[in-house]
Design a binder for these strands. Structure first.
Lengths: 367, 367
DNA sequence: GTGGGCGTCTGAACCGGTTTAAGTGACGAG
DNA sequence: CTCGTCACTTAAACCGGTTCAGACGCCCAC
């Protein structure tokens, strides 16, 4: 039946006005008398007219779309807990504004910046989200040169041409360290993500600073890569050292979970011989053995807020940096007081269902 | 400097021809003399002209974009191993064709179909991927009524208006069951995903059929929801029954991992008292304790192939259903011969680092 | 009575491509 | 010499909106 899609001229004809007036009425601009306006809107309703996004995009020189390019090694692709949650948050904002998200998933950083530049040059998006920032990241400058609006996630403020939407991960790491210290740990190690990433580095520095604040000697640390294999290898390295740590703070859950397994395979029992903490609170973290003490951030909220800021920027409204509520510690059973020291570090195997030590901690959530 | 973006008229003027001829030359259509063509392309190159995607989209009534709407409960959002890999595969194809992927992440099925219809009505995409199909799924019919091209992932062939790109998950499940049977298991239970989903149902049926083929009585089964919490609860239910299974086939890794933990908390040791297998081979599966025997599919390849088929369909080329190589079993240490039966089903706790039984299995990969 | 100002509305240009029908020139055939 | 054909090229319409300059009618002030 109604084959040819209805356009603005159909509505104009039906309402007995010019198509310019239909446009005015639709975007409720001044200069349209109230009853004409109602008549036009009624006609539009009756004909089921939806203004063509494509025509509007051409005319307005806008894409009504925002872009995100994700660079992930195949290893991590499936399990990264961040992006889908972030995108879910972004989506709640965009869908109300008639915008849409364009996503690219690429393998490495070279392809990542190519992806952003292609989106920009082709005018596929009005602005982009910059995640996984690195030290001396080339993206802000290059995209700024193209005149593309952007927001950066967790960038250092200051020299950036773009507003930052920050969610402090340092607070969660510091809480982890303090929590472990309160349990009686003194040698607290760290397995970091790549320190070339801002978030890899900031978590590592948060750990180091917390140790210093508590008057503890800086424990052993290993730089790793956020993958389970990397976390397991780093853990073996830490535990084979002369004075192995009694607790390890990992920069993410995947490494913490694999590290826990690696420790157990070296004959340690958890959390007796080794306490571990993670970061992200991915779904399986609460269901591993023992349940993982970790840090949780409101990733969905991060996406929402980032989208709001980016849309403001795209629309020319002024924006400032935004700070979101920091990541919070979630205490579970993978952290416990250190076992009294015996000569050997090899202890009897995991005693099955572990006791449920309840640890008094400041401003932390328990589960 | 070069502020106003260069358009087709700039190129035409520079090459001393009409803009129509520029268009012809660019889309290499017949009727342009070779040297004129070269001159035009040289001008375009020199001026750095990129045809405006927006103008082309309006003119051609095409979006040069494909759409994907993901419905996931918040619980699963972060850890679903499927989508980012699938998207990565899609991307490799789209980027070469000048197409782009529009992604929406929504909470439930109602929002999912709304999302698809919005993308269709607004002309934001030329076609969509339909994933997570359910029995009596309303989407194919509704989208077909809107005239939107689509491909379905793993749909039953036949009554669908759309081509299907299938990756057989049944083969992997059947291999899991056979593998466990070869190890000596006779009571093999199953924890399924929601059977309202085609893939939840097909995995469950593959398990049931494999049991029947092997002449084994259908073991206990529980329908669950693909989440860790659901997997743990289902596991407790299975193990509390009168004749608990000695092995459980889970419909995904998240449930298997959580199920393994739940079993251990009931006092069982793995894999001695209970063998478990998963599905997906997510990154932490190989690093849990014990490493998880699971099933792996080429999700990236699935994305590639789906994108190819969908682009063919959009361009009006004929398409038929496609079958990809089936999912394959990956044998690790969470599956082992059942321990000799004792009266009590409660056994001594997990003996720490487990022995490394090597199981002989047919056409399976080991790691 | 005329002019100015205001509210309402329209025609036409514009965004930057694609497409179609018509036009131009060269060339061979009659 | 004229006409038809063919290869090449162009002007103009089109996609479906937005926007701007101006037209029109009306009321009020001078």
């Amino acid at each position: 039946m109604a084959d040819r899609p209805v356009t603005i001229v159909d509505v104009a004809r039906h309402a007995g006005v010019s198509k310019a007036l239909v446009s005015f009425a639709l975007n409720d601009r001044p200069g349209v008398s109230p009853d004409t306006r109602d008549r036009i809107l009624a006609s539009a309703e009756e004909l089921g007219w939806r203004p063509s996004h494509r025509a509007r995009a051409l005319s307005a020189s806008r894409a009504f779309a925002l872009g995100l390019v994700v660079a992930r090694p195949p290893e991590l692709l499936g399990v990264d807990p961040f992006f889908l949650s972030f995108i879910a948050g972004v989506e709640t904002v965009l869908s109300q504004q008639g915008h849409v998200l364009v996503l690219q998933v690429v393998r490495d950083e070279a392809a990542e910046i190519d992806g952003y530049e292609r989106l920009a040059r082709d005018g596929r998006v009005d602005g982009v989200f910059l995640t996984d920032l690195r030290h001396d990241d080339p993206r802000p400058a290059r995209l700024h040169r193209l005149g593309l609006p952007a927001v950066t996630l967790n960038a250092t403020s200051g020299e950036s041409p773009y507003p930052a939407v920050r969610l402090d991960d340092r607070a969660g790491i510091r809480a982890s360290v303090r929590h472990l210290a309160e349990l009686g740990h003194a040698r607290i190690g760290h397995v970091s993500g790549p320190r070339s990433y801002l978030h890899g580095d900031s978590r590592r520095n948060a750990w180091a600073e917390a140790m210093t604040e508590l008057g503890l000697p800086p424990g052993p640390e290993v730089e790793s890569d956020f993958t389970p294999a990397g976390g397991a290898a780093a853990t073996r390295e830490l535990l084979r050292a002369d004075h192995p740590p009694t607790a390890v703070v990992y920069a993410n859950d995947l490494m913490a979970m694999a590290g826990a397994t690696a420790a157990r395979e070296l004959g340690l029992s958890l959390p007796g011989d080794l306490s571990v903490t993670g970061f992200d609170d991915i779904a399986p973290a609460a269901h591993m053995h023992p349940p993982l003490t970790t840090v949780r951030a409101d990733t969905v909220g991060w996406g929402e807020r980032s989208a709001i800021v980016l849309l403001d920027l795209v629309d020319g409204r002024t924006c400032t940096d935004v700070d979101l509520p920091p990541a919070r510690l979630v205490v579970r059973r993978s952290s416990a007081p250190p076992a009294p020291r015996t000569a050997s570090s090899h202890r009897p195997p995991d005693p099955g269902p572990s006791p449920h030590p309840r640890s008094p901690t400041s401003r932390t959530t328990e589960e």
